[in-house]
Simulated assay, not measured.
Amino acid sequence: MSRHLNVAMGQLGPIQRADSRTAVVKRLCTMMREAKSLGAQIIVYPELALTTFFPRWYIDDVQELHSFYETSMPNIATQPLFDLARQLEIGFYLGYAELAREADGLHRYNTAILVNTRGEIVDKYRKVHLPGHSEHEPWRRFQHLEKRYFEPGPGFHVRRAFGGVMGMALCNDRRWAETYRVLALQGCEMVFIGYNTPVHNAPAPQHDDLSLFHNQLSLQAGAYQNGMWAVGVAKAGLEEGVDSIGGSCIVAPSGEVVARCITKDDEVQLARCDLDWCAVYKRTTFNFDLHRQPHAYGLITEKKGETLAADGTQWGVDR
Score class of each variant (00 low, 15 high):
Ala177Gln: 13
His157Ala: 11
Ser134Asp: 13
Arg86Met: 10
Gln87Tyr: 14
Arg159Phe: 02
Glu98Ile: 04
Trp139Asn: 14
Leu88Ile: 14
Phe82Ser: 01
Asp123Leu: 02
Glu178Phe: 11
Ala97Asp: 09
Leu130Val: 09
Ile121Gln: 15
Leu170Asn: 07
Glu151Trp: 03
Gly95Cys: 03
Arg175Asp: 07
Trp176Gln: 11
Gly119Ala: 09
Arg118Ile: 04
Gly163Ser: 02
Met166Leu: 12
Arg148Ser: 13
Asp173Trp: 05
Gly105Glu: 03
Gly187Glu: 02
Leu130Phe: 07
Arg175Asn: 09
Thr111Lys: 07
Arg86Val: 04
Gln186Ile: 00
Glu89Leu: 07
Phe82Gln: 02
Met166Pro: 01
His136Tyr: 11
Arg181Gln: 14
Glu102Val: 13
Cys171Gln: 00
Asn110Met: 09
Asn116Arg: 05
Tyr125Gln: 00
Pro131Gly: 09
Ser134Pro: 09
Gly163Val: 03
Glu146Val: 07
Ala161Ser: 13
Glu189Gln: 15
Arg141Leu: 12
Ile121Asp: 09
Val122Leu: 06
Val158Glu: 00
Leu94Val: 06
Arg108Lys: 12
Ile113Tyr: 07
Ala97Asn: 10
Arg86Trp: 11
Arg126Asp: 00
Cys188Ser: 10
Arg140Ile: 06
Cys188Asp: 05
Gly164Ala: 02
Ile90Cys: 06
Asp83Ile: 06
Arg160Cys: 06
Ile121Arg: 14
Tyr93Ser: 08
Leu130His: 02
Ala177Gly: 10
Asp83Tyr: 07
Gln143Phe: 08
Ala184His: 03
Glu178Asp: 13
Asp173Pro: 06
Leu81Asn: 03
Val182Glu: 04
Asn116Lys: 07
Arg108Glu: 13
Glu146Met: 09
Pro154Leu: 02
Val191Asp: 01
His107Ile: 05
Tyr96Phe: 15
Tyr180Gln: 04
Gly153Met: 03
Glu102Arg: 15
Phe92Glu: 02
His129Ile: 13
Val165Trp: 01
Val165Ile: 14
Gly132Asp: 11
His107Gln: 10
Leu185Arg: 08
Arg174Asn: 08
Pro138Ser: 15
Phe142Tyr: 12
Arg160Gln: 14
Ile113Trp: 09
